[in-house]
Design a protein around this nucleic acid. Structure first.
Lengths: 215, 215
DNA sequence: GTCTATAGGCTGATAGAC
DNA sequence: GTCTATCAGCCTATAGAC
């Protein structure tokens, strides 16, 4: 045996946790909390299923740990926009691009968010809920700002921020199904995302713009 | 015993099926297919759980029967718009209003649709899939029409129809969570829907409108 | 046609060896 | 820290009484 007691049987704690989190993130996003079996997670991570209880204290805890990490990531990315002193137009644009960027890096986020929203946050810890709401409030705040500044037309900011978030979340959350329907894994379909972001930003900007406008 | 052999123990076939479908629709929408237990469905419907297997041939069949019925309803409602000879502007408006109307009558539809879309249609029968796609194609077709006719600006109709559907589906699918967050059941919050529909229609119309426009 | 009781299988969690 | 073996509980489906 080596003097450092590194047996090939043992991995370090960190790598096991990492493997479990990675596999679980994918599976939870794809099949939801109830649709995912701990067996699958363990097998997909290449570790024993008992490790889930050992390292995380159960399936539910693992789920919430992933959710918390993902939300933290989102929170960091939007931090700059939250405290930005730019115009509403610009902040809205920044948010859309930042969201798209986040969704590209963390494809599981929109899916897990939407799943929780659908079931009324059935599986998430109480203290995680405010994190969700911050994300929503940020968007509504930007629209309110635009209305106050007179650059946005007088929409209802509450319903409108839901429209925008709906477009964003839905687009990225449905990626899997779109790939499935296309038959192929759509390897070079990435431009799709750029077009989506561009068109959504443009449509929202023009749709919200104040002005002499039409009826 | 009565000569008509109507014991109070027995309900008729139709009412049992109806009760099961009603209870199951609500639960499937709220908790998803995997998150719903047949015990719950039966209890909520006030019938024995064995009735699910008896009347529908299992949980999955029940689920698909509900999905099929809901999609049929949607199909009927959109039939007129599909073959309408109106302008794209008008057809888009009609679609948004019809969708909102449908979602108000059948709150489970948007939730079940989005759940299936998320998991890549994991639980649905093969032959039900085209029904989903028709709904999507209808919206994309309307946008294409507007671009052809020159009343819509030159967006990518594929990504844009996803934006619109995302807004619609998300808004109605998140109703439960919004009520939960509000603390109260939001009895008189129905005007919210009207404002949403009005603002979404206006934002899309203005956002898509062709014209001298800005950059 | 409806019900009760139960079968048969799978799930998430744990105790204890290594 | 990791693994094997195993448990208790729950799930869906079915057989058979009424």
């Amino acid at each position: 045996m080596s003097d450092k007691s590194i047996d090939k049987k043992k991995r370090d704690k960190a790598s096991t946790r990492e493997a479990l989190i990675g596999a679980a993130t994918e599976l939870f996003a794809e099949r939801g909390f109830d649709g995912t079996r701990v067996d699958q997670i363990a097998q997909s991570a290449g570790v024993n299923k008992a490790m889930i209880s050992y390292h995380f204290g159960g399936k539910k805890r693992l789920y919430n740990e992933i959710l918390a990490a993902t939300l933290n990531d989102a929170h960091e990315r939007f931090h700059e926009i939250r405290y930005s002193k730019e115009s509403a137009d610009r902040r809205l644009r920044d948010f859309i691009f930042a969201f798209a960027d986040l969704a590209a890096t963390q494809p599981a986020l929109p899916v897990m968010v939407i799943r929780e929203v659908l079931s009324g946050g059935l599986h998430i810890d109480e203290d995680l809920l405010p994190r969700f709401l911050e994300l929503f409030k940020l968007v509504q705040g930007i629209i309110d700002q635009g209305i106050r500044e007179g650059t946005f037309t007088n929409v209802n900011s509450y319903v409108t921020h839901l429209s925008l978030l709906g477009s964003l979340v839905f687009f990225f959350a449905t990626k899997q199904m779109r790939e499935l329907l296309a038959g192929s894994p759509l390897p070079s379909r990435v431009p799709e995302v750029r077009e989506f972001v561009r068109d959504l930003e443009r449509t929202m900007r023009r749709g919200l713009a104040a002005g002499p406008a039409e009826a």
